[in-house]
């Protein structure tokens, strides 16, 4: 479990940033001027954890993004969706969640799966249809959605 690594991919006024590891006090955010981009995409697929200092450093880092820039949070694991739901400013105003993971737990074999949802229309309408059950990747029994939907999908209303 090392420090956070951030990969950058710049094309003109567009930047894609992919994060790997924990977002915490040891995170060294790149010296990239986020205010110079019209489009910013964050890929959270490989984020493993976030703590209180990580939340603070994240908000501090992204506050330079231009208010009119198009900002997308992609492949958000539960730890990121939890912060989007709970902490104002974790997702900048006018930014959107492009895709996110939903956890499913299998009581039969004690396995936790996560399934990616990336329905742009549903997300835009705030009405994602997520199945309450999903076949477990290990035993194929029915795994149940492992979040309180009213709470987890609160970010869709933002």
């Amino acid at each position: 479990m090392g420090a956070l690594k951030i990969g950058e991919d710049v094309h003109g006024d567009t930047v894609s940033l992919s994060l790997t590891g924990p977002i915490d006090e040891d995170a060294n955010f790149p010296n990239i001027d986020l205010s110079s981009f019209q489009e910013v995409t964050f890929d959270f697929m490989n984020v493993t954890a976030i703590n209180s200092c990580g939340i603070r450093e994240w908000i501090r880092w992204i506050e330079n993004i231009k208010p009119e820039a198009r900002v997308t949070y992609s492949n958000c694991p539960k730890v990121i969706i939890d912060q989007v739901n709970m902490v104002d400013g974790f997702l900048p105003t006018n930014a959107k969640v492009g895709s996110f993971y939903v956890p499913y737990f299998c009581e039969s074999c004690d396995n936790l799966d996560t399934t990616l949802y990336s329905d742009p229309v549903g997300i835009a309408n705030g009405s994602v249809k997520v199945p309450p059950q999903f076949p477990c990747s290990k035993c194929k029994q029915a795994a149940e959605i492992d979040v309180i939907e009213g709470k987890y999908f609160k970010f869709l209303k933002k």
Binding site: N51, S52, C53, I55, I59
Partner: peptide
């Protein structure tokens, strides 16, 4: 939570709430 964050180098002041 956002309104309670301390922006220094020390604790963020929200750890207990988390």
């Amino acid at each position: 939570i956002a309104g309670s964050i301390k922006y220094g180098k020390n604790g963020a002041g929200i750890g207990c709430r988390l």
